[in-house]
Simulated assay, not measured.
Amino acid sequence: MSHLQLDHLHLRYGNAPAVEDLNLEVQDGELVSLLGPSGCGKTTTMRAVAGLLAPAGGTITLGGQDITRLPANRRDIGLVFQSYALFPHLSTFENVAFGLRLRKVQDAELRRRVGDALEVVGLSEFAARLPANLSGGQQQRVALARAIVIEPRLLLLDEPLSNLDAKLRLDMRGELRRIQRELGVTMLYVTHDQDEALALSDRIVIMRAGRIEQQGTPEQVYARPGTPFVADFMGWQNILSAGNVPEPLRRTHPAATHFAWRPESVTLGAGPTSGRVLARTYQGEHLEFLLDSPLGRVKAFAPVTAQWAEGSELTFTLPPERAAALRDA
């Protein structure tokens, strides 16, 4: 049996549906990311699992126990929010200890568990500091330590890195993955950042309009998107109607409604199709070209030494072996 199981889950805000007939299983020790744009239902789903939103229908099972109607404080779930939600007047130690004090854990046991949690997140030497004297990354680690110290059956993280700068986000990605592996805790992670989901997850669940559009390993959703929505969300920027691609490719994938190519897959400077360069932008390690062509708008990368200017005509190839065949959801 799955560690966390959502069966035919229906969630609403008033009369407005937010999640419709969602089914999801999360295995013990697995890190699953709910990925999608704002309003797709990912945070709403997490709120229901946490006990902060009552389902309109369906069931939520954790460790074989039906928790659908169980109060949030009896679900044994750890939460890490985007805003950290630390108590400003409490030290790092006391912020982490807060949940244990509510559970009336004995003092010796409390000190051991808080010390262990701070060691896991690398903050042992900051136990006496107030949140105001910690960096953003350190505050996020305190929030994480507070969630893991209660030894939860499930850890929920809602956009936990979005308030950090780019470098800290990269550092914290690695720390989160290390901690999750070290503790073996089951984790449900909400994000709209594709790179974050790819770097952290055992499995990615891509949501759209309250439903699951596709799920799979990071490699599967990145390399083999199933629908135009997933392809676009995962960076396949050249998505063309099947009617605009060569006949041999359509014959190979007769059920496809669209085909997609990543910008790095497009070959510039040779091929059967010609396009006009609408824009040329410097991206550090490469140049990005936007072409207007009979097939539609095409985006492609080229070495920084490429000389094609805006307004010039440029031939290109869309390699059939690099295409993703897509079907409408």
Rank of each mutant, 00 (worst) to 15 (best):
E182M: 13
R203A: 13
E196I: 10
M187D: 01
G226W: 05
I239R: 00
T217D: 04
Q215N: 11
T186H: 04
H253I: 05
L176R: 00
E175F: 04
Y222I: 10
W261F: 14
M234S: 01
R178H: 09
R181Q: 12
R251S: 15
I150Q: 07
A260S: 14
Q237F: 06
V266I: 13
R211D: 07
G226C: 11
A147H: 04
A199P: 10
R203Y: 12
D232P: 00
G216W: 01
A231T: 07
P254C: 13
S162A: 15
L154Y: 09
D195F: 12
F233H: 00
K167N: 14
L268P: 00
Q237A: 14
I239K: 00
R173G: 06
D165G: 07
I150A: 06
N163Q: 14
I212A: 11
L240F: 08
R177V: 03
E264M: 07
L168M: 14
H192D: 05
A209M: 13
D202V: 13
S162N: 12
M207N: 11
R262C: 11
E196G: 09
R146H: 06
L156G: 07
R177F: 01
Q214K: 04
V230F: 03
Q220M: 11
R169N: 09
A231G: 10
D193R: 03
P248M: 08
R203H: 13
N244T: 15
L268D: 00
E159M: 13
E175R: 07
E151L: 12
P218S: 05
A255Q: 15
A199D: 13
T186W: 02
P218C: 05
P160K: 01
L156D: 03
V230G: 00
L176T: 01
R178I: 07
T227W: 02
I206R: 03
G174C: 12
D232E: 14
E213R: 03
W261D: 03
T191D: 06
L161Y: 06
G210H: 04
W261E: 08
P160D: 02
I204F: 03
P272N: 13
I212N: 09
P246W: 03
M187N: 00
W261L: 10
A209W: 11
M234I: 02
N238A: 03
R250Q: 14
G269Y: 08
G216K: 02
